[in-house]
Design a protein around this nucleic acid. Structure first.
Length: 289
DNA sequence: AAGATCAACAACCGCCGCTAC
DNA sequence: CGTAGCGGCGGTTGTTGATCT
């Protein structure tokens, strides 16, 4: 329904990537840069869907990717970020240098879900999140419960049926996605002017999905969430926006103290907006009752 | 030793928002 | 202004190796 598949599946390779394909993709991107995923496979001589190429590059071939060995600090941060943000894997991944959303998602579903379950003795698939319950991780241990490879949509349905009646929750509104905004920095007051309309005034740099982009998206999400004009959050303690530094590396501080600090700032920011959402939620409900 | 089950993770699929036409 | 196309995201599935019975 709706739209056609992103690409014709006819004659395209599926399944695991071969070293040869990896080499072709890497070589092409090194020569021509990221982007143009749709036409990339053809130009690179790959019999793959553009999406598949993008995924492969983003998750495995990118030079700054860190694989495996998730540290206890990262582990802890993932858990806490998840409790704040829900299944916003890309956002969470954006806070962890070299980690991809897919890796974190998998890690959550295979390790952390279980771990938390064991720790709390309760179903942690319902994070203490501000997110909508519809976004709960539907995977995790469910696959096994269902005896392996069977489809589990039905199972999920069953879980829902058996679940306790949902508590009244306050949800964050689903944030809008704002494309690669560049936050101009005014050095005089060390704050950012954030104007979503400026998105159209793009530079070449903006086209890259850099950590800065992630910051920008995050900023826009928070803006959307809280309608706050104060972006001191991003500017006072973390010099995250630096126009001259657009390389593909992380801006995220790696020491645990900074992780803790960042987490607290996230928490504070979200918390700050709570009352507002309670009001919004009540307002919304009043429209439907 | 062999089949069954579990665990991990790579990859696919479908949907959505943004943008260019 | 409407819409098709693209890129990105999150959910889900498939595959494979490890462990258990």
């Amino acid at each position: 329904m709706g739209r056609a598949p992103c690409c014709s599946k006819v004659g395209l390779h599926k399944g695991p990537w071969t070293p040869k394909e990896d080499a072709l993709l890497t070589k092409y991107i090194q020569a021509h840069g990221e982007g143009q995923w749709k036409s990339l496979p053809k130009k690179a001589g790959l019999l793959r869907c553009g999406k598949s190429c993008r995924l492969r590059w983003m998750n495995y071939l990118r030079p700054d990717i860190k694989r495996g060995n998730i540290t206890p600090e990262e582990d802890d941060l993932i858990i806490r970020m998840h409790s704040l943000l829900g299944n916003r894997w890309s956002l969470i991944a954006g806070r962890l240098p070299g980690r991809t959303d897919n890796e974190i998602k998998n890690y959550w579903n295979t390790h952390l879900c279980k771990k938390l379950k064991n720790q709390t003795g309760e179903d942690t698939e319902t994070p203490n999140s501000l997110e909508s319950p519809q976004q709960e991780p539907a995977s995790g241990s469910k696959k096994k419960k269902n005896g392996g490879k069977k489809k589990n949509k039905q199972k999920n349905k069953g879980d829902k049926d058996n679940a306790e009646p949902p508590k009244t929750q306050v949800y964050l509104p689903k944030p809008i996605r704002v494309k690669a905004l560049y936050l101009p920095r005014t050095d005089s007051n060390n704050t950012y002017t954030f104007d979503s309309n400026s998105a159209s005034a793009s530079t070449n740099q903006e086209k890259e999905e850099s950590p800065l982009t992630k910051e920008s998206n995050l900023a826009s999400e928070f803006r959307n969430v809280g309608e706050s004009d104060d972006f001191g959050f991003f500017s006072e303690d973390h010099d995250l926006v630096n126009a001259s530094d657009m390389e593909c590396h992380s801006y995220f501080p790696s020491d645990h103290g900074s992780l803790q600090q960042l987490y607290e700032e996230y928490y504070h920011l979200l918390n700050m907006d709570h009352s507002q959402f309670i009001e919004m939620s009540s307002f919304g409900e009043s429209l439907f009752t």
